[in-house]
Structures are given as C-alpha cells and as structure tokens.
C-alpha cells in the first residue's frame, strides 16, 4: 500500500525520469510529500527512499539539512518573517515580536487551531520590501504589525486561499514537455 496518492506518485516518477541518477529527485520528492501531508511523514520517507533507491535514514538525514522540509507537523500556513540584516534595519525583529504576541506562540510553534506556524527566516531575497514576509513561501510584501494581523485574519477566513496555496513549492509547477 503506497502512502503517496496515485497523483503525487505519478508526478514523483515523472520527476525521477528527468535525472541521470534517481537520487537527484530526493529533495523535489520531499516537496511533493509536503504538498500531500504538509510535512514529511515517516511513511513518505520510506516511499521516497524506495523510489530513489536509498534507505529511509538517508532520506531523513538529507531532509533534515534543509529548512523547508518539515520533520514535524506544521500549521496550514507557515509564516516566515525575515530578521536578517536588511529586514533588521526596517523593523523585522519588531514584527517578529509582534507576531509572537499576536498569535500567542513562540518561534517554531503552531497555533492551537492548527492554522499558523511561525518561523524566523533568514534572508528571503525580497529586501526591497523589508521587513519581508512569506506565507507558504509566497511573498506577501512588507508588513506592519497592523497589516500582519489583518493578513492572519484573512488566512483564517480563507480569503487568501487562491493566492496562497497549501504546502509544497512545486504545487503549481507542471512540466508539460515530457522527459527528453
């Protein structure tokens, strides 16, 4: 019994075919698993291991190196607030402090309703709009404490569900030219 859905598994096999060595698909497949589950479940690690030809421990060992791959459950929306130098100079730390008190959680934690996980991010390459914020790795532009609260409210009511899809950075990426 596969853990990955038939649709996700089919896309996984298409991705594997793009590389001379199947192991290259390990990280992209972790993104696909997160698309399905929100985080990298042990069952998904086992299936990815089997698909790319390594052990589940190698999948975990590799995945744990990368910030975007979650080894524990996260909320429906992961909010990343950058506090690196360009954002520090434009109120990034103040925004992160505000987010913690407004959401009532610390950095790395998830709200009790399972809606939001808060992350302190390193530079997200949007320094012209500092302090920089991403939700599920979609840029939402510079935020003030007030606009941040309204952003969270919109996430909770589902108002942004079109512009901010669920997890998985490849969720809207489709290669339609086959493997050549």
């Amino acid at each position: 019994m596969n853990h990955l859905s038939p649709e996700i598994r089919a896309r996984a096999l298409e991705i594997v075919a793009l590389y001379p060595d199947a192991r290259s698909a390990l990280v992209p497949l972790c993104h696909l698993a997160q698309e399905q589950d929100g985080w990298l479940r042990p069952e998904a690690m086992e299936e990815i291991a089997q698909i790319v030809g390594v052990t589940p421990a190698e999948v975990r060992g590799t995945a744990s190196f990368y910030d975007m791959i979650h080894l524990e459950p996260v909320g429906k929306y992961v909010i990343s607030i950058c506090t690196n130098i360009a954002c520090l100079l434009r109120g990034g730390e103040d925004l992160l402090n505000h987010a913690q008190s407004s959401l009532g959680i610390g950095v790395g934690a998830t709200t009790s309703d399972g809606m939001v996980t808060l992350e302190e991010a390193e530079c997200l390459a949007d320094c012209g709009r500092a302090p920089c914020v991403q939700v599920n790795h979609r840029y939402v532009g510079s935020q003030t404490p007030e606009s941040f609260d309204s952003l969270v409210e919109k996430l909770r009511t589902g108002e942004l569900s079109d512009s901010i899809p669920p997890h998985g950075t490849l969720i809207r990426v489709r290669r339609n030219v086959g493997s050549r």
Binding site: R23, S24, V27, P28, C30, Y66
Partner: peptide, 24 residues
C-alpha cells in the same frame, strides 16, 4: 528546473552540485 529546499550554503557551487545529486 530543480528546487532547493532552504540552505544558504547551496549557493556555493560545489554544495549546490551535492544538493542537486540529492544529498546534504
């Protein structure tokens, strides 16, 4: 097109190649 997954060091070209090979 190959997606990274959040690691500054992968901008270093030999680290990038390791990452592209499916490793840390």
């Amino acid at each position: 097109v190959h997606p990274g997954a959040g690691a500054y060091i992968c901008g270093e070209e030999t680290a990038l190649l390791e990452s592209l090979e499916g490793k840390r």
